[in-house]
Structure formats: structure tokens, C-alpha cells
Amino acid sequence: MLLIRCPYCEMERPELEFRYGGEAHVARPLDPMATSDDEWADYLYFRSNPRGLHAERWRHINGCGRFFNAIRDTVSDKIVVTYKAGEARPATTGEIA
């Protein structure tokens, strides 16, 4: 069970308090109707799914209820950093632990 730091509560809490929300920084097009079918499919379905560092969304659903982002190494499951929704992805080294 992961231990996740909620950047709003500023506390580490067990995974059971959170819900995973998929890849982060997949922004909804500002004008969806102006997108092509390919662009829209890319937004809806296509994901980077990396083996290594992954920026992803979590929601502290059984806590403060806020969405935030985390960068996690998908090989070791180690969470490198968590940050608030809307903040830019922090610089991280590309190394896989």
C-alpha cells in the first residue's frame, strides 16, 4: 500500500484514502468541437504509459477531496513528488530507481 503525500493536507496518508485518476497534464481541448477526430481520440484515449517516471492524477477522495498530481516511478512505484493541480510538472531526473 502506497503512502501518498497530499499537497493540500500536507500529510502522508495511505493509498486507501486516495483514488487514482490516470495520466496528468492531459488537458481537455479548449474548443473540443474544433478538434479533428484524431486529435479528439488522442485526448480521450491515447496515453504515454511510460515505464519510468509518470505524471499522474490522484484525488484525496477520503480526505480533503482535492485532485493533485504526482510523479511516480512506475517500475518501483516510488512517488518522487506530489504537487497541486494546475501547477507545472516539476523538473525530475529521468532516472528509474
Binding site: 495520466e23 481520440a41 484515449y45 491515447f46 496515453r47 504515454s48 504509459n49 511510460p50 515505464r51 512506475t74
Partner: peptide
């Protein structure tokens, strides 16, 4: 489970999550 990684080598993104 490693499909996204291999396909990425050919520059192809996939609608997959592992």
C-alpha cells in the same frame, strides 16, 4: 504490458495503460 514502451520506439502512441 510493455507494448507502449516498444511501440514508443517506433514513435507510436497507444491507447493503453498497464
Amino acid at each position: 504490458g510493455n507494448t507502449s514502451v516498444i511501440m514508443g520506439m517506433a514513435g507510436v502512441r497507444m491507447p493503453l495503460e498497464s
